[in-house]
Amino acid sequence: MSEQERRRHHDNSDPSCEQGPEDSGSENLTRQRREVDDLLRAGDDIINRVISGDSASFLAAGQQQGGQ
């Protein structure tokens, strides 16, 4: 289980626990912003791989009748 999974598990299993001063709202937001930065950094190569593909032909090939 990764650190993030552990944190999510903890958050969900015991959400009623009091937040300590070290985990205040602003610190939460700082942590969340850092996680988003990590996300975007990790996604750099992934996004470049996608965008370097042929978007136009990809979208055209994907065009179909759709569903409900």
Binding site: Q4, R7, R8, N12, E35, L39, A42, G43, I46, I47
Partner: peptide, 16 residues
């Protein structure tokens, strides 16, 4: 893309 981000361990969405 979601799966690649998951493999990179930067998502925080899983529910045990």
């Amino acid at each position: 893309v979601f799966q690649s981000l998951q493999d990179a361990d930067v998502l925080n969405h899983e529910i045990p």
